[in-house]
């Protein structure tokens, strides 16, 4: 029968070494858990809720980009295809034509095209749009509200802290799943 081993005597160095190993193991575990969570959690992007937005003009002036990542978008299913579109024409235009003085848009970013009389189609030329929301006000005040501002994700840098979200007076900005990056308007909401 062999004699049992004498119990090891705890030393200060051994105690510290074991503590360090434990801490390293814990940190590695926590890191792995966090990474797992991160990989599982869906990526999010910034978007604004068109039903909260009051078109204050901050979207045009506060984006970190030289030209804002926020643009006007046209929800065609909601559009009335009006001859006298209040998103396109200034109040009391001198004529229903494409003269710059008659247009609401300060950059001429809205294209107007005649369809079957008396209907007209309106499209946004996005590179020209500065996201000021002036047309949105005209459309929402009088018409169906088919013009709305949205963060365009082919431009947005997805900043950690969106510079517009900080100043938005309507708290319209939030992070949304990258798989559903737009907040569209609906006819049901209008009704």
């Amino acid at each position: 029968m062999s004699a049992p081993e004498a119990p090891s005597v705890p030393t200060r160095r051994g105690f510290l070494g074991a503590g360090l190993r434990g801490a390293l193991l814990f940190a590695a575990g926590a890191f792995t858990t966090l990474m797992g969570r991160h990989l599982r959690a869906e990526r999010t992007v910034w978007q604004l809720d068109p039903y909260k937005c009051i078109a204050c003009t901050n979207c045009a002036t506060h984006c970190v980009l030289e030209q804002s990542a926020v643009k006007c978008v046209q929800f065609h299913p909601m559009c009335g295809y009006c001859k006298l579109c209040t998103g396109y024409f200034e109040p009391q235009p001198s004529g229903l034509n494409t003269g710059a003085e008659n247009q609401v848009c300060p950059t001429g970013a809205i294209q107007r095209r005649a369809l079957e009389d008396p209907y007209y189609e309106y499209r946004i030329d996005e590179p020209l749009c500065i996201g000021c929301g002036k047309c949105v006000v005209g459309c929402v005040l009088f018409g169906n509200g088919s013009f709305a501002l949205q963060v365009r994700h082919d431009r947005c840098l997805n900043c950690n802290e969106c510079a517009i979200a900080i100043v938005c007076p309507a708290q319209a900005f939030s992070r949304v799943p990258a798989s559903q990056p737009y907040q569209l308007k609906t006819r049901e909401h209008q009704a």
């Binding site: 009051i54 078109a55 204050c56 003009t57 901050n58 045009a60 002036t61 109040p91 609401v104 300060p106 000021c132 929301g133 002036k134 047309c135 006000v137 005209g138 005040l141």
Partner: peptide
């Protein structure tokens, strides 16, 4: 809640 309470006048829809 009023729309466009500030900003450059050219960007305001003015009624």
């Amino acid at each position: 809640g009023a729309p466009q309470t500030g900003g450059e006048p050219a960007l305001r829809y003015n009624l």
